[in-house]
């Protein structure tokens, strides 16, 4: 078992999964917003990054790591709610391009403000768990306590979101508000409030992804979510913007495809793997791999 875990094949599996769960989280957060408000939130990564700054820089003031994570998520949720209320709500019913333009602009504003407040110097955030890989008889297994934490946390968040949507009254109201706002309103669901909550939920999930990124090797800086956002976007498009499970699967698939193309095909092709995957997915199933119905708008 140990030798198997230390094999090259499993190296790629673990490497792909570790990367993939982050893409999945970002994709999931995009899909939650898309489902509830049909807005593609281009500032999703930047909003999460901002929340991470607010929380994780508290570490410098002696606040414990986990408290900082909680602060980040709470700030992220508040930020998401306020954004929906202030920037997005006036745009409901307007052309679909409007919120896209607003959020692209917002992305630039958030990154500039963040650099203004905290400078763009990379901040090193201590990882909550060791990043030293496990070994089997001197051979590395590409899993460290931190990677396991990363994967476990991501799965935990996904299960939490799934359970919330499926088994709670709030989840039912959220789904109703997204799927049939008029009917839901007639049945007493406060649709606008649900949309705000959808944004809060999405921003909270995004903040978790941003916390993982910043706590990894690469530290926290104003543009640290840009590349991840693009990958998350591809993952959501591949999986289907209508499907949370599709987003998660799309993220994992993208992580693994990147890793395997790199290992078995060509390193120079690997950076393009996201685009390749997107093109193939759009050709084969333009509605997304896991989207069940294309007739919703009718």
């Amino acid at each position: 078992m140990g030798a198997f875990l230390a094999s090259n094949f499993m190296h790629n599996i673990f490497g792909g999964l570790a990367q993939g769960v982050i893409y999945s989280l970002v994709a999931l957060s995009l899909v939650i917003i898309w489902q509830s408000t049909h807005v593609l939130n281009f500032a999703q990564g930047a909003m999460a990054m901002f929340a991470t700054y607010v929380g994780l820089t508290e570490i410098g003031r002696g606040v414990g790591y986990w408290w900082c994570v909680i602060i980040s998520v709470v700030v992220g949720m508040a930020f998401g709610g306020i954004t929906e209320r202030v920037l997005i709500r006036p745009l409901y019913g307007k052309p679909e391009i409007n919120p896209i333009v607003v959020m692209v602009g917002f992305l630039g504003v958030i990154e500039a403000v963040t650099a203004g407040i905290w400078t763009s110097t990379t901040r090193n955030i201590p990882a909550p768990f060791s990043q030293i890989y496990y070994q089997y008889r001197g051979r590395l297994i590409l899993l460290s306590p931190f990677v396991i934490f990363q994967i476990a946390l991501a799965i935990g968040i996904m299960l939490f979101v799934a359970a919330l949507f499926r088994y709670t009254k709030l989840g039912l109201q959220l789904r109703a508000a997204a799927l049939a706002p008029e009917v839901a309103r007639l049945l007493g669901v406060r649709v606008h409030r649900m949309l705000t909550i959808g944004w809060m939920l999405s921003a909270g999930v995004g903040a978790v992804a941003a916390v993982i990124i910043a706590s990894g090797n690469f530290g926290l800086f104003p543009t640290d979510m840009d590349g991840v956002f693009v990958a998350g976007f591809i993952a959501a498009a591949v999986g289907g913007l209508e499907s949370p499970m599709g987003a998660i699967a799309g993220g994992l698939l993208l992580g693994l495809v990147e890793q395997f193309i790199l290992a078995y095909w060509s390193p120079s092709v690997a950076p393009l793997s996201g685009v390749i995957l997107l093109v193939v997915a759009l050709m084969v199933r333009p509605q997304g791999i896991f989207t069940r119905s294309v007739n919703r708008r009718v």
Binding site: F14, G15, A18, Q19, Q131, I132, Y133, Q135, L140, L142, G216, N217, F218, G227, E258, Q259, L262, A263, P267, S268, A270, P271
Partner: peptide, 23 residues
């Protein structure tokens, strides 16, 4: 130590200075 960002790196996105040092 920037493999995760691509940037023409051929060592794989999960490669870090720490992982290579461990090797």
């Amino acid at each position: 130590n920037l493999a995760a960002f691509g940037l023409g790196c051929t060592a794989g996105p999960s490669t870090t200075t720490l992982s290579q040092t461990q090797v």
